[in-house]
Design a protein around this nucleic acid. Structure first.
Lengths: 126, 126
DNA sequence: AATAGGTATATGAAGTTTACACATAGATGT
DNA sequence: ACATCTATGTGTAAACTTCATATACCTATT
């Protein structure tokens, strides 16, 4: 096929972020494994995982609800306390299993990246 | 806000892949840093990076053209050899710089994941 | 010389995921 | 009464991936 200069619709390439798809899921599950919490309360601890750009609260709530639909967490409304009602989430046994599979996936990802990094080091040595 | 059961349009959560956004870019750049090549020739070596599902050839060609537009690689048509004409790609100095920034990004990603993995190990110890 | 298969490059379109803005609402302080 | 903080959520466009498909040249075979 001959060279061709059609317009390109896709992304402009920069900025590249190298984000990990749905990384928020294992982060949320881990935090809930440590202790039950409501969404708002998870914003700050989540930010410790260095999300860039900053963690989107909307995404937290959506992800929690989604995971609840799949039985990975359960929630109950907590009134009584000060301020508006909060939905308190707890990890389920299923959720633990899901976290475990996430851990396996992430371990593989690290290996993938390490492989590339090592190969990069090799060509840099020359 | 009260509990609410609206239909959910978003993804069904499973399967989760934890793919790294545009991971194909640093892989291609690294392979080209090792030695110039045409797209078709890169399919097999790319698969060594354990893409799941398998590397999409279409994505390879698109990504190479895109990176060329940004000056990270240059190509020239190679006839003469057996088979149809091939577009031979070479890394540019700019491309090396882009690869370097990718390496930094990926190093950060590894750190993010390691942080999570360690924290997971901690709660598993109990 | 037709045709099948391999090599090589590329596009179309639908589905998934993220980013950012915005909406809702109760509680608290002035 | 009003603003502000806490808390939960939705709408939507842009970005990204996936899978299917198109094109075309070359080589070997019948």
């Amino acid at each position: 096929m001959a060279p061709n200069q059609k317009a390109e619709k896709q992304h402009d390439l920069l900025p590249y972020k190298g984000k990990i798809e749905r990384f928020i899921e294992p982060c949320l599950l881990l935090l809930l494994a440590e202790k039950p919490a409501h969404g708002y309360e998870l914003i700050e601890p989540l930010s410790q995982f260095d999300f860039e750009p900053n963690v989107d609260p909307g995404q937290i709530y959506r992800t929690l609800r989604r995971m609840e639909k799949h039985g990975f967490v359960v929630s109950n409304w907590e009134t009584g306390k000060a301020g508006p009602a909060r939905r308190r989430y707890q990890l389920t046994a299923q959720g633990e299993g899901f976290l475990t599979s996430w851990i396996k996936t992430l371990t593989k990802r690290v290996q993938m990246i390490e492989k590339l990094l090592q190969r990069y080091d090799q060509i840099m040595e020359r």
